[in-house]
Amino acid sequence: MSVDSDLLLGDGVDLLNRESRFLDERLWDEWLGLYCEDCQFWAPAWRNDDELTSNFQREISIFFFKSRAGLADRVWRIRSGQAPSLTPLPRTTHVISNAVLGDNSTPNSMILHSAWTCHVYSPRTRTQHVFFGRYEHELVLDGGGGRIKRKKITLMNDYVPSMIDIFCV
């Protein structure tokens, strides 16, 4: 790997790490601020035991938002204190690892593939669960630390105990 791509990867990983910190520390505005207004946030559902759905216009997704406004709706609900499943709000810790640059990444735009786990503790039920999977981020690096243009989440364990929200993946 060249020095250039090392630097590029470092910038990308830094952005991913900031995202996970904002989620875990409930810095929702900062988290939303990482996303482009016209971002795509997509977690496809599984079609069967082996295959994911591939067409979000004709098939079900676990999450699909075609703009930051869809994420903002979720943040509004998380903050509202009016959702029984989010009262008290589950605590999370994200761990992101194994990041590699995708093909055709440039200093302005890069694809980053990574692995993630999210530990979720529910004070309501005093239970915990680990969701895990892979991310594919498309990042736009515009000098200001970069923003997320597209995020695809593969959730490997889609047998969900009671609830899953955007901050659990």
């Binding site: 997704s61 009671s162 929200d165």
Partner: peptide, 20 residues
């Protein structure tokens, strides 16, 4: 699909509140 995901999915805005 969007209306389904919004309300009925376990990842949606409503079903997890039922299960809770």
């Amino acid at each position: 699909i969007r209306q389904h995901e919004d309300f009925f999915n376990v990842s949606g805005l409503a079903t997890p509140d039922d299960t809770a």
